Amino acid sequence: MTDANTNAERYLAIWNETDAIRRKAMIAEAWAEDGFYVDPLMRGAGHEGVSSLVEGVQARFPGFRFTLIGPADGYDDNLRFSWGLGPEGGEALIKGTDFATLENGRLKSVYGFLDQVPAAA
C-alpha cells in the first residue's frame, strides 16, 4: 500500500478541489469505478456519485477546507484517518474519521464517521 498519509491527503484534495473538471479527473485517478462513500448523512456510488457529494458539501460550506488531523494509519489495503473541516486558515468546526479500503491502489470504499458537528451544521 502507498503511504497512508499520501492516500489520505490525495483523498482530502478531492474534497477541496472546486474546479469540477479537475476534481473529476482526480476522482477517476484515485477511486475505483465502482467505489462508494457512505456516512450518517449521505452516500454516493461511482465517480459521478462521489463528485456530487463533494459538490454538495462545497455548496453547503463555501470557503471551508478539509485538513488532515494527525497522521493517517494503514495496513494492507485499509486506511484510517481523521480530518477537520473549517474556514481556510481557521479552526475546524466539523471533525470526522474515515475508514477506507483500497483496490489496486484506488479507493474502493470509504466509511465516514462524524466526530464533532456543531448544532447549526
Score class of each variant (00 low, 15 high):
residue 1 M to L: 10
residue 2 T to C: 05
residue 3 D to I: 04
residue 5 N to Y: 08
residue 5 N to E: 08
residue 6 T to F: 09
residue 6 T to E: 14
residue 6 T to P: 07
residue 9 E to K: 13
residue 10 R to T: 15
residue 11 Y to N: 06
residue 13 A to P: 00
residue 15 W to Y: 13
residue 16 N to C: 03
residue 16 N to T: 04
residue 16 N to S: 04
residue 17 E to S: 09
residue 19 D to V: 04
residue 20 A to I: 12
residue 20 A to F: 05
residue 21 I to D: 13
residue 22 R to Y: 06
residue 23 R to Y: 08
residue 26 M to F: 06
residue 28 A to H: 03
residue 28 A to D: 12
residue 29 E to W: 02
residue 29 E to H: 06
residue 30 A to F: 10
residue 30 A to S: 10
residue 31 W to D: 00
residue 31 W to I: 00
residue 34 D to F: 09
residue 35 G to I: 00
residue 36 F to A: 15
residue 36 F to K: 04
residue 38 V to A: 14
residue 38 V to E: 12
residue 41 L to D: 10
residue 42 M to L: 11
residue 42 M to Q: 08
residue 43 R to D: 11
residue 44 G to C: 08
residue 44 G to I: 12
residue 45 A to H: 05
residue 46 G to S: 02
residue 46 G to T: 01
residue 47 H to E: 02
residue 47 H to P: 01
residue 48 E to S: 12
residue 50 V to I: 15
residue 52 S to N: 13
residue 52 S to E: 14
residue 56 G to K: 05
residue 57 V to K: 02
residue 57 V to C: 08
residue 57 V to H: 03
residue 59 A to L: 09
residue 61 F to W: 12
residue 63 G to R: 04
residue 66 F to M: 00
residue 67 T to H: 02
residue 67 T to M: 03
residue 68 L to C: 02
residue 69 I to F: 05
residue 75 Y to L: 09
residue 77 D to V: 08
residue 77 D to S: 13
residue 78 N to A: 11
residue 78 N to I: 13
residue 83 W to P: 00
residue 84 G to V: 08
residue 89 G to I: 04
residue 90 G to I: 05
residue 90 G to M: 09
residue 94 I to L: 11
residue 97 T to H: 02
residue 97 T to E: 12
residue 101 T to E: 13
residue 103 E to V: 14
residue 105 G to S: 07
residue 105 G to A: 10
residue 106 R to A: 13
residue 106 R to D: 06
residue 107 L to K: 00
residue 108 K to D: 14
residue 108 K to W: 06
residue 110 V to W: 00
residue 110 V to I: 14
residue 113 F to C: 11
residue 114 L to P: 07
residue 114 L to E: 07
residue 115 D to Y: 04
residue 115 D to L: 09
residue 116 Q to L: 15
residue 119 A to D: 13
residue 120 A to K: 06
